[in-house]
Amino acid sequence: MSIQHFRVALIPFFAAFCLPVFAHPETLVKVKDAEDQLGARVGYIELDLNSGKILESFRPEERFPMMSTFKVLLCGAVLSRVDAGQEQLGRRIHYSQNDLVKYSPVTEKHLTDGMTVRELCSAAITMSDNTAANLLLTTIGGPKELTAFLHNMGDHVTRLDRWEPELNEAIPNDERDTTMPAAMATTLRKLLTGELLTLASRQQLIDWMEADKVAGPLLRSALPAGWFIADKSGAGERGSRGIIAALGPDGKPSRIVVIYTTGSQATMDERNRQIAEIGASLIKHW
């Protein structure tokens, strides 16, 4: 068994979910400061990975656009189908120029040979490839089937209604394609530690997140040497930005962190900087 497989195998399969305990108010002060700096709502939650206990939260039950963070949930649904014998990671999917949508850096290079389901999930999570996400959504039956998958695992909040790139529209008070920080954190924890997926599929999902190549300016920029992070970022219209992550010291994950913001006029660089500063405070007061 590899070190990575050993790491995931040791994560307990508890489903406990406790009331908020504000253990590190310094980080919450930074979250509130980020709201002021961005002129926007910021949602934040931090869960203990083992117990599910809420360590910190701010606007945990307010809706925020999911943006590309939904791609982790999508690949979780795909892996669930693989575990059930309904899908194969090695199955090759062919597509055409007409299937390509905005921001598809991986799929646009494989119009001739197509891509396997495994490769599409990797592209969707590590590079946030939008066409890969749409092709994967098609394999499970579309956005409503992803919502149904989430409902079946106990998440009655998170919903996907549209395809890429329309799902990033982020209209105020529009519940389409949204989640809440508390719901997303709990669902991510179930996918990474629960019995919904096999150990091999849980390991595959966290491996894809660990290999994320487009979230460098966010939490990763604040991470000390030797820390572990597996994450997925998202960006949308109307100043929307977000990240979901499993992270921790000593090379293994010990907490789930979810950060969303929407409604800002700030630049992407400024949104990234504020999320990175929240991450720096989190690590400082770990």
Rank of each mutant, 00 (worst) to 15 (best):
L136G: 01
I243S: 01
L146S: 00
K213I: 15
I244G: 01
A148S: 12
L19P: 08
Q4K: 12
R202W: 02
G251S: 11
A170C: 12
E61V: 12
A15T: 15
I45R: 02
K284R: 13
Y44S: 00
T186Y: 15
W163N: 12
D231S: 04
D174E: 09
H94E: 11
K232V: 00
G154R: 05
V78T: 06
T179K: 00
E26V: 09
P224W: 02
T112M: 04
A124P: 00
P60L: 09
N50D: 15
Q97E: 14
A182S: 15
A200G: 13
D99A: 14
L89I: 08
L89S: 05
D250F: 14
P143E: 04
P12H: 10
R238A: 10
D212A: 04
V106D: 08
L79C: 04
R81S: 13
S80I: 08
K232P: 00
T186K: 14
D231H: 03
V157G: 10
E145T: 11
R176H: 09
S240R: 01
L282G: 02
P12R: 04
L136V: 08
P60A: 15
L197H: 04
R159H: 14
D113N: 11
P249I: 06
L55G: 07
G239W: 01
Q204R: 09
I243G: 00
A222W: 07
D48V: 03
R241S: 07
A183T: 12
D207G: 13
M268A: 08
L218D: 02
I243L: 12
P12N: 13
P172R: 12
G52R: 04
E164D: 00
D212C: 04
F6L: 10
T179W: 00
S80L: 12
A170R: 09
K109R: 10
K53S: 10
I140F: 11
N130D: 02
A182R: 15
T186H: 14
R91S: 05
Q97G: 15
L219W: 02
T69G: 01
H156Q: 14
V72E: 00
L137R: 00
A15E: 02
V257E: 01
E62V: 09
G239V: 00
L47E: 05
V117S: 01
G242S: 08
T262S: 11
M268G: 07
L55I: 10
A245S: 12
E175D: 14
T126S: 14
R255C: 02
E87Y: 06
K109M: 14
A84V: 14
G251W: 07
A16S: 15
T27M: 06
G226S: 13
S96G: 12
H5S: 10
G279V: 10
E166L: 14
K252L: 15
N173H: 14
L10V: 08
I259M: 09
S233E: 00
V78Y: 02
V101F: 10
P143L: 02
S57Q: 15
L135G: 01
E237V: 10
P12A: 12
I125R: 00
M115G: 01
P249H: 07
N272G: 05
G90T: 11
K232L: 00
A246G: 06
V214I: 07
G251V: 08
S281A: 13
S221C: 12
P105H: 04
W286V: 01
P249R: 11
V106N: 06
Y44E: 00
T138I: 08
S96A: 13
I45V: 13
I278F: 03
G236R: 01
G251R: 10
L197P: 03
L218W: 02
L218P: 03
T138R: 14
E175P: 11
T179P: 00
G154A: 04
S2R: 10
W227G: 01
I256G: 01
R63S: 07
L167S: 05
D174P: 02
A215P: 04
I206Y: 15
S221N: 10
L137F: 07
D99H: 09
D33E: 15
F228Y: 07
L89T: 04
A16V: 15
L150W: 11
A266T: 11
I256V: 14
S201V: 03
L197A: 03
G76A: 13
E119R: 05
I243A: 03
R176W: 09
L55W: 08
A84C: 08
L137G: 03
R59G: 03
R92W: 09
I171M: 15
D99G: 07
N168G: 11
E277G: 10
D161E: 09
L89D: 04
A200V: 12
A211G: 10
K32E: 13
S221I: 12
I54Y: 08
R220K: 05
P224H: 06
G226T: 10
R241H: 03
F149L: 10
E62G: 08
T27Q: 06
M67E: 03
A215H: 04
E87R: 01
V257L: 09
R81H: 10
F70S: 10
L188A: 08
Y103G: 06
N168K: 02
D174K: 02
G76V: 03
Q86V: 11
D83S: 05
M153N: 13
R162C: 09
P65V: 03
H285C: 14
W163E: 12
E169G: 14
A170T: 10
R220T: 02
D174F: 02
Y95A: 03
L188F: 06
V82Y: 07
S254V: 13
A200S: 14
T139R: 15
A215V: 03
Y260A: 01
N134A: 03
L135V: 11
Q4R: 11
R91E: 05
V101I: 10
A225F: 10
P253E: 08
F13C: 11
E145V: 13
T147N: 09
V21G: 08
P181I: 03
L188Q: 02
L247C: 10
R81W: 05
E87N: 04
Q204A: 06
F64I: 02
A15K: 03
L218C: 05
L137C: 05
L196G: 10
T178Q: 02
K252T: 08
M153D: 11
M115R: 03
R63P: 09
S240M: 03
D231A: 05
A222V: 13
